[in-house]
Computed example of a mutant assay.
Amino acid sequence: MAAKDEFGRAGEQRAAAHLRARGFDVLDRNWRTAGGEVDVVARRADALVFVEVKTRTTDGFGDPLEAVDARKRARLWRLANAWCAQHPELARGRARRLDVIGITGADPATARLEHVEDVPWA
Rank of each mutant, 00 (worst) to 15 (best):
H115W: 13
A45P: 06
V53S: 00
V68A: 05
R73E: 01
V116N: 10
A106M: 15
K4P: 05
R78C: 02
R73L: 03
L27E: 07
V51W: 00
D69Q: 06
A82K: 13
A15P: 03
A3P: 11
T58Q: 01
I103E: 03
G60Q: 07
L113Y: 09
W83C: 01
D63R: 13
V40A: 00
H18L: 11
V40W: 01
P88A: 14
A3H: 15
N30H: 02
I101H: 00
G23E: 02
L19V: 05
A45N: 12
R56W: 08
A82Y: 09
P108E: 10
E52Y: 00
R29I: 03
N81D: 14
A109Q: 02
W31F: 04
R20F: 03
F50R: 02
D5G: 11
A21S: 04
I101W: 00
G23Q: 02
A21R: 04
G102I: 11
R94N: 09
R94Q: 09
R78I: 07
A17W: 00
A16F: 05
I103K: 02
D28E: 14
P108C: 11
F7G: 00
V100C: 10
R32T: 06
R56D: 07
Q86P: 05
R44E: 01
D25L: 05
R78Q: 13
G36I: 07
T110W: 03
R32S: 07
R44I: 04
R20H: 01
A74P: 08
V119L: 10
V53C: 01
A47W: 10
W77T: 08
G62T: 11
A17K: 02
A122D: 14
G60K: 05
V119D: 01
D28Y: 03
K54R: 14
R44A: 06
D39K: 00
T58F: 05
R71K: 12
P64N: 08
R9Q: 13
R94G: 04
E52I: 05
A21K: 02
F7S: 02
P88D: 14
A70Q: 10
G11F: 07
R96P: 06
T104C: 10
D118K: 12
G8W: 08
W121Q: 02
A111I: 08
A47E: 12
A45I: 04
R94F: 03
A10C: 02
I103C: 06
E114V: 15
E117R: 15
M1K: 14
V68W: 07
D99R: 06
D118P: 09
R43A: 13
R96Y: 06
E12D: 06
E89H: 13
R14W: 05
A122E: 12
R56A: 13
G8H: 04
R71W: 05
R96V: 06
D25R: 09
V68M: 03
